[in-house]
Design a protein around this nucleic acid. Sequence first.
DNA 1: AACCTAACCAACCGCCGGCGT
DNA 2: GACGCCGGCGGTTGGTTAGGT
Length: 201
Amino acid sequence: MGRPPCCDKVGVKKGPWTPEEDIILVSYIQENGPGNWRAVPINTGLMRCSKSCRLRWTNYLRPGIRRGNFTTHEEGIIVHLQSLLGNRWAAIASYLPQRTDNDIKNYWNTHLKKKLKKQQAMGAIFAPPPPPPSSSAETAANLPGAVHLDNHHHRRRAATRRSPSRRRSPCAARHSPTSPPTAPRRPTPPAWTTYPGSSTV
DNA sequence: AACCTAACCAACCGCCGGCGT
DNA sequence: GACGCCGGCGGTTGGTTAGGT
């Protein structure tokens, strides 16, 4: 429908977030709470689009997030839920409150997919998958932190695939030349992610 | 020591549904 | 009822790092 982009692409900064930006974002959300993302870049002066702010918050800055080192238990849950729900990462993430959908998605794509492939290749000789529950949906609902899988979140995206030729436009080079090239890949989550009142992880 | 390749992961993009007007 | 905006989701990219040769 020719909808305009979520944000004016001109003057919007892209690429990795700097610690300074993180601080600004976190302190704003501490004061105002998450939500109304549109207002965030306006009120904070961050040269980021609202989506970018939300993503940064939910995937990285949000308190209570655990990163890396998925336990075998978590792996099991993810594998099981993926078989039940498919690639509904947000739904899967709702069963693992300490993990983000992005993290789970990445972990699935980089680790679990291969692992399962390998296991399948080995046949059923070793360790068959965890004993199947009586009812898949039931099990999912019984998992800790389960969120009801109402249709609300069952988005129909099957027919929405982009054309396979989609390519990032040249101007969309993510890492702006001004970004510090030596920025650590996985900077330690800043101390400010621990909030008064929020249990430390 | 230098180069090459594979793996990892943060972040971007486009689309959809819900909600307000 | 129609339209437009916003938030959220899933797929994908590409820079960085680690491991191998």
